[in-house]
Design a protein around this nucleic acid. Structure first.
Length: 495
RNA sequence: GGGCCCGUAGCUCAGUAGGAAGAGCACCGGACUUUUAAUCCGGGUGUCGAAGGUUCGAUUCCUUCCGGGCUCACCA
């Protein structure tokens, strides 16, 4: 784009840049030695009396966020990664040329380094009396308005760098996100879990019922899939003797985008040998309580205007109990398939012809009950039909030892006693293959090497997955998953 | 993918029952040596998302497309 096509705002900044260059100024410097971060100046000197100054020269650097001109003296706001401080610039201290240059050629958005004396104005604002300044980076585009910030949701996501500059609460969300992940690691590391990394590129996508992204390896001439879950690899590691493992990393699912779905999202999965899903339930509760206390300082907070209390012992209901309680329907596997379908259709559910009793019951739970569970609730004993990797329930062969943690109507965690019997696992995969034939693209594929690993022997194992983004949504009071992803997926801008 | 809504200046938003495109901030010029959403005086900087259509005339009405939001479906 030539300069004649640009708006006046862009043109003016480029003119200032040209002027600086022709005056021998370097507008993109490589470094600046600081003596202080802004927050350390604020901490050290915030108790100064108005009018008082400190006999110590400081050097700080940051981005100019505001300029207030007052003739022969002016103020500017300077922000670095730790805080904001006011600059006080006067003709007396800088000399006429440097003072005028600051006002004429520097703009809001520019990075500058300054040196000067710390003092407090008579209005009580901690400030730096600037004796020297240096332009570090010239900004060529205006920032959004100081009062309303950047509101346009699309612009905020596409230009997250601007969002982070002008909307301070956005930075806090991502700091919280990092704290959550650190707290998870702290908790699991203290319990001697080993953090590992397993393949993102898989030749058989496994471990979850989801459509995968496909890709191609040129050198090997091989179709590959982006993983939908790390599960089968992590269980191979338990076979290998790593008794407690976890991975926090990205999963990719080729599905729709919504306020709670992004095509790539972050998942915690962990596996522990010699324990079952009841132990996983206890571990989940302990871990999430640890994370929330660490991050929020309290186990009670509000999410989207409603109070959530994580402090009590969380309720544990079987799926069938939950359906009965929240719908009044007396559902069990004793009903015939025909009866279940009839009830489901009366409730407005879409039931495909090949659905069995288990799938219908899980549909009833997900569509009719899940959204009503706001307080943290464990729902346990899922239908076997929808859980091809979980161990059957000893008291009911139609169920498995599996639970999900539901909070604010959403699934936060999913766990089970792992199926360790290789012969049974092969049968389960074969049932999944039938679903693939029915056109259920999310059905799971047969993974012969995983079966071979089970044949080597997987000890009794409990496994757990937690959707990290959704947990962060809860703890940051975010309505949309996009608010907790730095760069949520959007369609490409223009052409 | 379906339904509803949105797209006007760099940003936040008005507006035109179809007839010369507006405000605040930002920006440009001027005044001002302790201001802080500084103030005061002057200046509107625009492909009204894009392309067609209707019309004497379209930013406004219609169609299609692009992008976004909410919601339903699918999923975590």
């Amino acid at each position: 784009m030539g300069s004649e096509d640009q708006s006046e705002l862009l043109r003016v900044r480029r003119q200032k840049l040209s002027h600086l260059l022709s005056a021998g100024e370097e507008p993109y410097k490589k470094k600046f030695d600081r003596t202080h971060k802004i927050s350390s100046i604020v901490e050290a000197y915030e108790k100064l009396e108005p009018g008082e100054s400190v006999n110590e020269k400081v050097r700080v650097a940051g981005r100019i966020l505001g300029i207030r001109r007052h003739g022969k003296a002016s103020f500017a706001d300077l922000r670095d990664g730790t805080g904001t401080i006011q600059l006080y610039l006067t003709l007396n201290h800088l000399g006429e040329e440097r003072y005028e240059d600051f006002l004429n050629f520097l703009d809001i958005g520019d990075f500058v380094g300054v040196s000067g004396i710390v003092f407090k104005t008579r209005r009580g604002e901690l400030s730096i009396q600037v004796e020297e300044y240096s332009l570090l980076t010239k900004s060529l585009r205006p920032l959004p308005e100081k009062w309303h910030g950047l509101k346009d949701i699309e612009a905020r996501y596409r230009q997250r760098y601007v969002d982070l500059i002008v909307n301070p609460e956005v930075k806090e969300v991502f700091e919280t996100r990092t704290k959550v992940i650190k707290a998870i690691r702290e908790f699991l590391d203290s319990k001697d879990f080993l953090e590992v990394e397993t393949p993102m590129l898989q030749s058989i996508p496994g471990g979850a019922s989801a459509r995968p992204f496909t890709t191609y390896h040129n050198a090997l001439g091989l179709n590959l899939y982006l993983r939908v879950a790390p599960e089968l690899y992590l269980k191979r590691l338990v076979v290998g003797g790593l008794e407690k493992v976890y991975e926090i990393n990205r999963n990719f699912r080729n599905e729709g985008i919504s306020y709670k779905h992004n095509p790539e999202f972050t998942m915690l999965e962990l596996y522990e040998a010699y324990v079952d899903y009841n132990d996983m339930m206890n571990l989940t509760e302990e871990m999430i309580k640890f994370v929330i206390s660490k991050v929020k300082g309290s186990l009670k907070f509000t999410y989207q205007g409603k109070k959530i209390n994580f402090g009590n012992d969380w309720e544990r209901l079987t799926m069938l109990e939950a359906i009965t309680r929240y719908t009044g329907l007396d559902i069990s596997f004793d009903l015939s398939l025909g009866e279940l379908k009839k009830i489901a259709k009366e409730k407005g559910l879409v039931i495909k012809p090949y659905y069995g009793k288990g799938k219908i019951i899980s549909e009833m739970f997900e569509k009719l009950v899940e959204g009503k569970l706001f307080q943290p609730t464990f729902i346990k004993d899922y239908p076997l039909e929808v859980s091809p990797l979980a161990r059957a329930h000893p008291e009911n062969p139609s169920l498995v030892e599996r639970f999900e943690l539901i909070v604010a109507g959403r699934e936060i965690a999913n766990a089970f006693s792992e199926l360790t019997d290789p012969l049974e696992q092969r049968k389960r995969f074969q049932e999944q293959l039938k679903l693939l034939e029915y056109g259920e693209e999310e059905a799971q594929r047969l993974d012969e090497d995983f079966i071979r690993a089970l044949e080597i022997g997987l000890p009794p194992t409990g496994g757990l997955g937690i959707g990290v983004d959704r947990l962060v949504m809860l703890l940051t009071d975010s309505h949309s998953i996009r608010e907790v992803l730095l760069f949520p997926h959007l369609k490409p801008e223009k052409t």
